[in-house]
């Protein structure tokens, strides 16, 4: 693997900027930030400007007085805590679930979650400061936490993640007023990710992301290393990717393990940052066609172009 020059400052994406211009080399990043800000903006229009398009917060909301949306993970916590929610809650959760079944489960993480800009910023700072601390955390730990929050819920009869969930706490804070403690939680996550563990929070601990990865197992919208033969091993995509382990099986499969260029790991967040930073234009969003299981490795999953 031809790594970058260790003596020079490392700017993943610099060659893509040179090649395609700054805007194109940041298009998905910009779109995501717009999307994240837009979601929060919609919720804030009510309290700030009196325009009530959306009410509530990311846990559960009502849009235009008729569209209910509920976070399915929170509803699941409630069911595990032995409460049977009202129909509105179920309908809202079903709509959200179907949406993420389509667009890729962890698209929630990269396009909606208010923590993501913070952990992205931490990852950026970590690269700039060249922090190399390692952690003994492993990426499956989040699934243990996910299971733990549900099982403990049944044992205690309370929702177990909501008292600490930084995702909903921060979003609620943004819409209903931030408490000092909420800022401190954000700061803690930022420092943890910057100095202690690379992508420590979202990549290893957060059960919300773990939950949303599950619909991603089947969701049709996927990133694919379509032009992987053009890869020049600059490693820029690995450097920016919040879940770099998902790239290798698609970009650099080992011999008979080649299951096609599509990134099928449910932990790919569909952030599109790899598409942005690749100066060889290797990656693109593709549609995974149902019926073509990615495990048929003789037959790479059929794909359709949806974006350049």
């Amino acid at each position: 693997m031809a790594g970058h020059d260790k003596t020079k400052p490392f700017h993943p994406g610099a060659s893509a900027v040179e090649q395609f211009g700054w805007l194109r080399a940041h298009r998905f990043l910009l779109l995501r930030r717009l999307c994240q800000a837009g979601v929060i903006g919609l919720f804030l229009l009510g309290p700030l400007a009196g325009i009530w398009i959306v009410k509530g917060n990311i846990a559960s909301s009502l849009t235009l007085e008729f569209l209910p949306l509920t976070d399915p993970y929170i509803l699941l916590q409630s069911i595990f805590a032995r409460h049977w929610p009202e129909a509105t809650g179920f309908i809202g959760a079903a709509i959200v679930l179907v949406f993420y079944l389509l667009v890729g489960g962890r698209a929630y993480c990269s396009w909606v979650c208010p923590i993501n800009p913070v952990t992205d910023a931490a990852a950026w700072l970590r690269r700039r400061l060249r922090v190399t601390s390692k952690t003994s955390l492993h990426r499956n730990f989040r699934y243990w936490i996910l299971g733990l929050t549900l099982v403990l819920g049944t044992a205690t009869g309370m929702m177990m993640w909501e008292p600490v969930n930084p995702v909903t706490t921060v979003f609620r804070g943004l819409v209903f007023g931030m408490a000092t403690a909420t800022w401190l939680v954000l700061l803690a996550i930022f420092l943890f990710d910057t100095f202690l563990a690379r992508r420590g929070w979202c990549g290893h601990l957060c059960p919300v992301g773990a939950f949303y990865s599950l619909p991603g197992l089947v969701s049709p919208v996927r990133v694919s290393a379509v032009q992987r033969d053009r890869c020049d091993n600059c490693m820029d995509c690995y450097a920016v990717c919040p879940e770099p382990q998902v790239i290798s099986p698609a970009l650099k499969p080992k011999g008979s393990n080649d299951k096609g260029p599509m990134i099928v790991s449910p932990n790919c967040t569909n952030c599109g940052r790899c598409i942005d930073v690749c100066s060889k234009d290797v990656f693109a969003f593709r549609i995974r066609h149902p019926g073509h299981s990615p495990s048929h490795h003789q037959q790479p999953a059929t794909t359709t172009e949806v974006s350049s």
Partner: peptide, 19 residues
């Protein structure tokens, strides 16, 4: 609901607050 039931059921969305 009683406090135990409430902590099992309220998703903390604030829709009641808004209305």
């Amino acid at each position: 609901l009683d406090e135990d039931g409430f902590l099992a059921s309220c998703v903390r969305c604030g829709l009641c607050v808004r209305d």
